[in-house]
Every structure is written in C-alpha cells, then in structure tokens.
C-alpha cells in the first residue's frame, strides 16, 4: 500500500509541473485561441535564464523572478514578430502549427547556442529533504510544487475574474472584434497573454530541471503531458489545467508501474487520455462548449 502511495506522491509532484505548463497553455489559448507548440521550449529557455542568474550567485527565488521577467519579454517578442502578423489562428491552422514549430526549433537551437549541449544542474527550490507522513516519504520539493501551483492558479483566477486586464483578456478571447470596438487595445492584450504564459512557464521549468537535469530537451515530454492536462481539463479552463495536471501526473506514474505493456511508455496513458477526451468530450471536464468549434 505504501508503495502505491509513494507512486501516487511522485505522480502528484509531476502533475503539479504539468499543470503549471498547462496554465501557460490555457492563458495563451484563452487570449489568442491557439495551441502553442513552443510553450515547452519557451519554458526551457527561461529556465536557462534562471540558471544563469542563479549561477552568478543570486539566490534562487530571486533568480526565478528574473527568469520570469526574461521569459515575459521573450514571449512578448515572439508574439510580436512571429505570431501576431499571422492573423486569426483558426483561419489557418497549418500556418499556426508551422510558426509555433518554427519557434520551437529556434528556441531550442538558441538555447544550445547560448548554453551548450551539456546539462546544467539547478538546485531544487525547496531543497533535497523530505518528510514522512503516515509511512510515506514525501520530498519537500513536491509539496512546494503543489503549493506554488495552487498559488499560481489562484493568481490567474483572480487576474481573469477580478481585474480589468483579465476582463479584457476574456473579452478578446470570446470576440476580439467586439472587444476592439469597446476600446480594448486588442494587439496589446494578445501580447500580454504570451508574456504571461511564458512567465508562468518559467516556474514549470524550474521544477522540471532538478529532476531531469537542465537540458535543452527537458520540456519536450512535459509539453505533451501539459497538453494532456489541458485537454482533459478543458483548453480554456484554469481549474481544468490544475485538475487535469494532477490526473495526468498520477496516471502516468501509476499505470506504467502496474501495467507491463506501458512499462517504458509513461506517455501512453496520457496519449490515450488526449485521444479519448477529444473524441468523446472535446470541451474537457471544465471547458466551455465553445472550444468544440474548429
């Protein structure tokens, strides 16, 4: 039983990271209506920024804030030069796929160019120690990940529902033409959406790096898990990203442990989940019905 619980704890810890990445994906989906295939690489890139600052002797938490700011700027820049000129993403999905994939390649290459191909070491934000609760050992890092996730999700919920910027973002996502007619500066709102998504992605990377090693490819699998999370939760639902992340995290930890067919494919349960949800409940658990269009 304890073995099982320990696997579940691992799953929750991973799930928190998937959910963080998912939050970024949801923010972009909500503001611009597109699936950002470069989100993982954005997150990897800004984690390297964190590492650079941290490596220069700055405390890790401060370095993370620096990395988030850096990611924010990179996100804004990419949106302005590459994504925004494309126009409505739902009019030409192929162009969107190609451009976000191009950004994927460019960010990955740029990171290799700047930081090399040897993995870097980033300390876990909450240290190496662990507590034992009811016979189950839990690393503080995992508890920290869940707490940070809850904080981020709460922050975004408040942002969307309680602030003027959030109102504008919801308006733009639902009907950008009308939002513009109401005086919302649509291009600036879209740009901020990308910036915010990149900033929150930094945190996902900071929790992934100590586990997998800070390398240029570390977020590629995580991205698929993040997509699985928001597919399950609903592409436009923040709460959905959190719940979906947890479910995906636990499933992909537990299933390979007990089903030998999936032994070396933790991704398989996530894949089956994506497929099943899109087929039978495309709006996910918490998404709005509107997502079904396209």
């Amino acid at each position: 039983m304890n073995d099982f619980l320990e696997v579940v704890v691992v799953g929750i810890g991973n799930g928190a990271v998937y959910a963080m990445l998912g939050l970024g994906l949801v923010v972009i989906y909500r503001s611009t209506g597109l699936l950002n295939f470069a989100q993982g690489e954005l997150s990897m890139f800004s984690t390297f920024i964190v590492w650079t600052i941290w490596n220069a002797g700055v405390p890790l938490w401060l370095a993370i804030l620096g990395g988030m700011a850096g990611g924010f700027l990179v996100g804004i820049l990419l949106h302005q030069v590459a994504v925004s000129p494309l126009g409505d993403p739902h009019e030409k999905p192929l162009a969107v796929v190609i451009v976000t994939i191009a950004l994927f390649l460019a960010l990955n290459g740029a990171a290799q160019l700047i930081w090399g191909t040897v993995d870097k070491r980033l300390d876990p934000l909450f240290g190496q120690s662990q507590v034992t609760i009811g016979g189950v050992a839990i690393q503080w890092q995992k508890i920290g990940a869940v707490l940070v996730l809850v904080a981020l999700a709460t922050g975004f919920v408040l942002l969307f529902n309680r602030t003027k910027l959030g109102l504008a973002m919801r308006a733009v996502a639902s009907n950008s033409e009308s939002a513009g007619l109401c005086g919302v500066p649509v291009p600036r709102i879209l740009m901020l959406g990308w910036g915010l998504a990149a900033a929150v992605g930094t945190v996902a990377g900071v929790f992934t790096a100590p586990q997998l090693g800070l390398g240029t490819n570390m977020m590629q699998l995580t991205l698929i898990f993040g997509f699985a999370a928001i597919t399950l939760g609903g592409f436009d639902s923040l709460i959905g990203a959190v719940v979906g992340g947890m479910v995906v995290g636990i499933l992909s930890a537990v299933v390979p442990q007990y089903v030998s067919t999936f032994e070396r494919m933790p991704l398989a349960p996530a894949f089956i989940l994506i497929l099943a949800v899109l087929l039978f409940r495309p709006q996910g658990l918490f998404g709005s019905k509107e997502v079904q269009r396209v």
Partner: peptide, 18 residues
C-alpha cells in the same frame, strides 16, 4: 474525423512523441 485543425495536430504530435 472528429478531431480537426489544431487539435488533430496535437494528437498527431503525441503520436510522434510516442
């Protein structure tokens, strides 16, 4: 047949990774 556009890209991306 039921999954289109960006969502089909997502599913096939997962196939590629898998």
């Amino acid at each position: 047949l039921r999954i289109k556009g960006l969502y089909l890209a997502l599913v096939t991306l997962a196939v590629a990774t898998l």
